[in-house]
Design a protein around this nucleic acid. Structure first.
Lengths: 189, 189
DNA sequence: CGTCTATTTGAATGTACTCAAAAGCGGTGG
DNA sequence: CCACCGCTTTTGAGTACATTCAAATAGACG
């Protein structure tokens, strides 16, 4: 049951069985159906999520009511609103499910306590955030230096499986273009 | 001398005098003149920098030879290529000085040792990276949802002092537009 | 089946870019 | 101290990538 989760942690830290036990027993589990929300912009983000099955999206709804997807989190990825979670202030982002999704979660207060009990977790989340940061940097650069068509092709290459599972509307929002324009790009392939 | 540096750390962790001493004695110090480089794309980024005076820029040079500035680091900010530093693999980014700049730095190996000796540093850099991550997210969103003019106005509002110190060419690169177009935007104001 | 949302297609528009040339500015050497 | 060189900024004209609006078509779900 916790296989994927523990393997994910093992990528960056090696926990003793006791530590793993300690961690796992504080883990929440929830399954939500497609489109169900885990976080609404305006709320405080109290949890960090690990996707065991399915796919989440983290997005911002701008003043015009247009969504901008900041990231997808398929199986084996983490999702949270880092800004809101780490400061426990209201969130500018929302999180929902792109398809039926099963997530583990850790509560803010529990995690803060765990940081003390299991200091390796501090390390784990430092590394996790660093990785997320550098992925975001790459996306930022690609957004600035590549055309929409190039970005779409990179997306398909990088996430071949995801493309099947996610609506074009969402892919367009992730790429930072309109669904209409994405539809035209697809003709060219 | 270490005032600004220690105050910066104190924002997120409180070190004992012994811990502060331990940290500070491993700190390097270097002053570089405008345009001098601290990191060249293609090298491994072995240091994390703290800007005590002046201003650094972290940027990527794309296949066309065009620079894309990912961040400025004026006094009291940190700079590194997170991806390269944390993995100790070759860097896709370069770092140089926008004006005469004085930086403290920590070496990768030293920092890894310090993480063990002073675990609070693990926490500090976790929080630092989380903050950086959420700043980058905001920039990503603003890049997708705002026009160049709006982004320029936001930049001026957010970094009023920086605008004076940095060339338009660099501001344009940061905003993700051409210097030519920035020049036109400035007429409108 | 009917309704609602997602995708496609067409036409007109706008934002930002390229290329080119001129003007401004700063540093360096005579 | 001035003249010159190189780099930055401005300005003009033409262009391209991506958008908006509108309408038609296709798909998904109750």
């Amino acid at each position: 049951m916790y296989d994927l989760f523990l393997k994910n942690l093992a990528m960056h830290v090696s926990l003793s069985p006791a530590e793993a036990e300690q961690l796992v027993k504080h883990l929440g589990l929830v399954t939500i159906r497609s489109r169900a929300k885990l976080l609404n912009a305006g709320e405080v983000c109290r949890k960090v999520y690990f996707v065991n099955k399915g796919c989440l999206r983290v997005y911002h709804t701008d003043s015009e009511g247009i969504d901008h997807i900041i990231s997808f989190s398929p199986e084996n990825w983490w999702a949270t609103d880092v800004a809101s979670f780490s400061s426990q202030k209201v969130s500018k982002f929302s999180i929902d499910a792109v398809e039926e999704t099963e997530v583990f979660y850790l509560d803010y207060n529990i995690l803060e306590r765990l940081y003390i009990q299991v200091p390796k977790l501090e390390r784990f989340f430092r590394i996790l955030t660093q990785n997320g940061y550098s992925i975001l940097q790459r996306r930022m650069i690609s957004h600035k230096s590549k055309s929409a068509l190039q970005r779409y092709r990179m997306f398909k290459k990088q996430y071949p499986k995801l493309e099947q599972r996610i609506s074009q509307k969402h892919i367009a929002s992730f790429l930072g273009i309109t669904p209409v324009f994405l539809s035209r790009l697809r003709q060219l392939t």
